[in-house]
């Protein structure tokens, strides 16, 4: 059985609209009848990834492969990249600007939350080129 492929563009600079991709994905996963906990975890990871792309990378693209055994989410951006992944993974560490913080984002929980709710997480990043965060959630 081939994986169902979903692609969602994420607009940059628009924190109000952020979350659209994750809510669309969630509806699709519900239509497929996946276990509620899997849907919830995928949706949380996707939402955090979306916010990250909007705040740090001026948007990007989310690609989702829904297979029989796992969901793979790739969040791909052409943003500034992450200079120090270890620090970025620390809870509470954030480089978000004032605008994002004023809106209640930038608590430094984005990547740590994605790690917590996923079964596998991998970050490929190059400063000045961009970042791809790949997440796997077992079904």
């Amino acid at each position: 059985m081939e994986a169902v492929k979903l692609v969602y563009p994420v607009e940059g600079g628009d924190l109000i609209e952020a979350g659209e991709a994750s809510s669309k994905m969630k509806l699709t996963l519900k239509k497929l009848g996946l276990p509620p906990d899997v849907i919830r975890r995928a949706s949380i990871c996707m939402y955090e990834g979306e916010i990250n792309m909007v705040i740090h990378a001026d948007g990007g693209q989310a690609e989702v492969d829904v297979g029989m055994d796992e969901i793979v989410i790739r969040m791909i951006d052409q943003g500034p990249g992450i200079p120090d992944i270890d620090r970025a993974m620390q809870e509470g560490y954030s480089t978000a600007g004032d605008m994002a913080r004023d809106l209640g984002f930038g608590a430094g929980m984005g990547l740590p939350n994605m790690k917590r709710y996923s079964d596998e997480m991998d970050i490929e990043t190059e400063v000045g080129k961009g970042t791809t965060v790949t997440i796997k959630i077992k079904i």
Binding site: M1, V4, T28, K30, K31, L32, G33, L34, V66, M68
Partner: peptide, 17 residues
């Protein structure tokens, strides 16, 4: 589950594709 495409996930995925 009124939005469910099919109770069998394989079939649901085929339909989604």
């Amino acid at each position: 589950p009124v939005y469910l495409l099919d109770p069998d996930r394989t079939v649901a995925m085929e339909k989604m594709s």
